[in-house]
Design a protein around this nucleic acid. Structure first.
Lengths: 366, 366
DNA sequence: TTGAAAGCGCTAACAC
DNA sequence: GTGTTAGCGCTTTCAA
């Protein structure tokens, strides 16, 4: 039976004429209820499975939904339910292949759990990042996953007492939940590989020490090297932004004497830069010089020889970060301790034993 | 003066105690109004600039907003205003560097115009793509930007009569607004470059003819070549998925006689695959064989020699697609005609004149 | 089980 | 200029 109150708001299906998107009036849960001859609450229950329905009723409702082309209005739902089933993903640059892979894993994990992803590209700009955070709060996202930009001198209070649960990815923040690679272990893995091959004169393309990830990789690398009785001479250390240009710095070591027999780059972009420089100078890899990178981006498998590197598990990074966030949302076990994803050594063609004579390959200077 | 009706709903700031995100009660426009001693409509007007306010009032409102830490509730706003200021971006794979660059441009253009981006990675899966489309409709996004997956045998009615404006990017769909590179022109550019260098025996790593973009590139390439009196022999054509593996097919031409003097790959990934194969076989680029790609992804500038390629303007693609969508939303000039972004030739190191003798480089076979 | 009604926070139309 | 109010479409509580 259709009761007065239901009838009052009942809208005829007004089908047929294709009004083209914007112009079409909204089909609401009331229309569905009217069409199926049930109350709106019943339709809502059907939609959310929040109460069992008589099978016949359920069928009628579903038929009405199909007939009317009804689609739930998520904004209305979240206004009421106080959940948006959406998560903000803030990162420095989606066209950086490393972040893109993490983002992909996150989007998938989120989608599989019924969440949509709001993509926020901060362009390494702290101010833009802050504005994105605010917009996400206004959007009332259920949570935020954030790969924060490196230059972060902003008041952290904003983010330390967020209105919305936030999990940091790839870069940790003290006292906040985070999911990162075990960078120290990665550094150790690289060092062990080189040391076991017999290298003792090792150079580092280091990136900037201010970046936590870089520092950890370096610490691990040095510590493990020390265990093998090897130290990195200060002149074998190059620092600067972790970009392709830093790789060019290898050239100074090629000309140096004694020449190092191996180079560790703290990421693959830098390693690729070094590879180009070395090949361009006629240095043979790994016969004259071994080269090891960090990250394992797709590109590192494409050089010739392909790069030996420390593989970060980007899929696991994204998956775990999502899992931690959803745990936070569910209110279970507030995991404030950082989650570490173990990296692994991928031996490809760019590393080998050091040249027989420590001076090998120097003829070309004469 | 605070009137009864206003008072009735007034909530004290309940500041101080930090309840930690979820637990904190919502600060609403009413709270702001109460705190500032104005009506909610006034606050709304202030927020939206929908009516001029006395300066003193405006200041009071802003102070109340700051004091209370008010943040507009976008879901509530859009429920009323029927606009969400959000756009869905559907693409096959965000970790493909080409799509990632386009996505980045889109996110930026959208953000600059006050829209947020919902990232939907379809994983090349038509079914997943369809579900994303539905979810976006439920979310009542204002519009959709879509790089559709190639294998699309699904009923197109769904997308031909969308409830929400949709603009196709990179791949066009008949009768729908789209923004793509001028792939035909790109093919012509590549052909002209090769022809002008003097190449006449040219091979193609083609990809799949079913993909419109590939076909257009090929058509343009062949047509321009024909203008120079050159035809591509059928045995100089390799087809298959546009992946790195296709590049390996060059090896059969290296061993062929007469050997082609140049190879056109319909995208850079394939070209990189070819480059690896060639370098691995000891073929000198471009001395023995010229190689030209398509796209100009970052990687193509990193090989040695760096790849000559047809550059797609990914930033323009993203920017234009956004512009077309926003025009559609504004209801101005329904641009159903596809928008074409001109690509450009980027000459780097992988192309040069053909070897002096057409048989050059063949000794290694003996 | 199902139905009715009270809002969620906001905008916009209208009255002052 | 400013204040009031009626919903936007939905969930949820409470009654029946």
């Amino acid at each position: 039976v259709i009761l007065p109150a239901t009838l009052k708001r009942f809208k005829a299906p007004r089908g047929g004429g294709r009004l083209g998107g914007a112009g079409r009036a909204e089909v609401t849960i009331r229309d569905v209820a009217g069409h199926a001859g049930v109350a709106v609450g019943t339709v809502s229950n059907y939609l959310n499975g929040s109460a069992p329905l008589a099978e016949a009723t359920a069928r009628r409702v579903q038929r009405a939904i199909d007939a009317l082309g009804y689609r739930v209005h998520l904004a209305a739902r979240s206004l009421r339910s106080r959940r948006t089933q959406s998560v903000g993903l803030v990162l420095p640059n989606i066209s950086n292949p490393f972040y893109a892979e993490v983002a992909r894993a996150i989007e998938h994990a989120l989608w599989d759990r019924g969440f949509q992803t709001l993509l926020c590209d901060s362009s390494q700009d702290a101010e833009r990042e802050r504005m994105h955070l605010e917009a996400l709060e206004s959007r009332r996202v259920d949570g935020i996953l954030m790969i924060r930009t490196a230059d972060w001198r902003l008041p952290r209070s904003r983010v330390l007492h967020p209105r919305v649960p936030i999990v940091f990815v790839d870069r940790s923040v003290d006292g906040m939940p985070s999911v990162t690679s075990d960078n120290r272990l990665g550094g150790e893995l690289a060092a062990r590989h080189l040391a076991q091959l017999g290298h003792r004169a090792i150079a580092i393309l280091a990136g900037e020490n201010a970046v936590g990830n870089v520092r950890e990789r370096l610490d691990g690398f040095r510590a493990e090297l020390a265990r093998h009785g090897v130290t990195v001479a200060p002149r074998y250390l190059a620092t600067g932004p972790q970009a392709i240009e830093l790789g060019r710095e290898v050239s100074r070591w090629v000309k140096a004497r004694p020449r190092p027999t191996a180079v560790f780059a703290t990421n693959d972009i830098v390693a690729i830069g070094a590879w180009r420089q070395l090949v361009g100078m006629g240095v043979r890899i790994p016969a004259d010089l071994s080269l090891i990178g960090f990250d394992d981006i797709e590109m590192s498998n494409l050089s010739l020889p392909p790069l030996t590197t420390i593989r970060q598990d980007k899929a696991a990074l994204g998956r775990e970060a999502t899992a931690v966030l959803l745990e936070l949302l569910a209110g279970t076990a507030p995991r404030a301790r950082p989650t570490l994803i173990p990296p692994s050594l991928v031996v490809r063609g760019s590393t080998g034993p050091p040249p027989a004579s420590p001076r090998a390959g120097e003829e070309e200077r004469r």
